[in-house]
Design a protein around this nucleic acid. Structure first.
Length: 336
DNA sequence: GGCCCTCTTTAGGGCCTT
């Protein structure tokens, strides 16, 4: 069965994040400030190109950017270093990794084998064992970090439905952002929250969840590095977004791919606020975190894509505050 | 519903997600 975005004009995969990265770097070069910024991920990877991916260290001067230049505020962002990687050699290294005794409790992924670099869907993943810190570092080098957000008709995953999904691959580049409305085939009772009305989603050209899931899987697979895991990050995802998504997958007779990991920025925010002491406001909603870090709102709040843009920046700030590299995110803060 | 905090643990209230 073949699915195409052309079937659903309201389903969009585009390169907004790419332009975000470009403007970010451009602003950095022109700011003249003294702050340094080491990016969480590089956008040098080309999903379709395969072997050209390199993780690089970048130090630039920057401002936190958005689409509206006038709304940009000066910030001092400094982020982690991801060591440069020869993807080919490390892929082989990862392939031959042997399972050792587990050092951590929790579900993690271990790449067992990978048939070829071009058949990205054929590798197997074991979710029961884990080995050394070096393993996590290797895993991190091949990890894809995707922020995502959903809008729904309510809080109850039994009775409510997803009406919008947005994803953003932090690596940026072409087709790094995915956003679509979802036809819930029912009325939307909470338009006042997100502005999405029944008339907007109950349309023939808006995909239903069962139509969308194959497209979503295809999008994530297109961003995934052969042999690597995907880490899907959301705010309060452990108790809301992830169970909701799983419920929708199950309702449509799909399973969440075994090589998908999830991470929640809510406990990260708790850890950061706790480390800063009692004087720091304890509000840790996405909006509160955005305001705390001085991140400008891009687009309407409580729309999936807008919240994903905020989440991507909040994640970078939180991981910097916690001095948390990608390997640490996978090792200590991810879940299945 | 899960997590965290505290005037707690034999509990209850608040936060977070739409």
């Amino acid at each position: 069965m073949c699915f195409s975005l052309l079937q659903f004009p309201r389903c969009r995969i585009h390169s907004l994040a790419n332009s975000w990265w470009e403007s970010f770097h451009k602003l950095g070069r022109s700011s003249g400030g003294s702050s340094s910024f080491r990016v969480l991920c590089s956008n040098n990877y080309e999903p379709e190109g395969g072997n050209s991916r390199r993780w690089t260290r970048r130090t630039i001067n920057t401002k936190a950017g958005g689409s509206n230049e006038s709304s940009i505020r000066n910030t001092s962002i400094r982020h982690e270093i991801i060591p440069e990687l020869s993807s080919e050699s490390n892929s082989k290294k990862l392939e031959t990794t042997k399972v050792q005794k587990s050092r951590k409790i929790g579900i993690r992924s271990k790449i067992i084998s990978e048939s070829t670099s071009t058949k990205i869907s054929t590798y197997a993943v074991d979710t029961t064992e884990i080995e050394s810190d070096q393993h996590y570092i290797d895993l991190a080098k091949l990890a894809t970090i995707i922020c995502f957000d959903i809008e729904t008709t309510g809080f109850g995953r039994e009775k409510d439905r997803i009406i919008e999904i947005a994803c953003q691959d932090l690596r940026g580049g072409e087709n790094s952002t995915f956003q679509t409305l979802v036809n819930p085939e029912r009325d939307v009772p909470n338009q006042q929250i997100h502005g999405i009305s029944t008339r907007m989603v109950n349309r023939y050209d808006v995909p239903r969840m069962k139509d969308l899931i194959p497209i979503l899987l295809q999008y994530v697979r297109s961003r995934q590095i052969p042999g690597g895991v995907v880490v899907l990050v959301s705010h309060n995802g452990r108790t809301f977004d992830v169970p909701f998504l799983k419920k929708e997958f199950n309702r449509c007779s799909y399973e969440i791919p075994s090589d998908w990991l999830f991470a929640d920025t809510l406990p990260l925010a708790r850890a950061v606020m706790k480390s800063k002491g009692p004087k720091v406001p304890s509000k840790i909603s996405l909006q509160a975190l955005r305001e705390h870090y001085g991140i400008p709102l891009i687009g309407p709040a409580h729309r999936a894509l807008s919240d994903v843009h905020s989440l991507a920046l909040v994640l970078q700030r939180l991981t910097y505050d916690l001095k948390l590299p990608v390997s640490g995110l996978i090792q200590g803060w991810s879940f299945k």
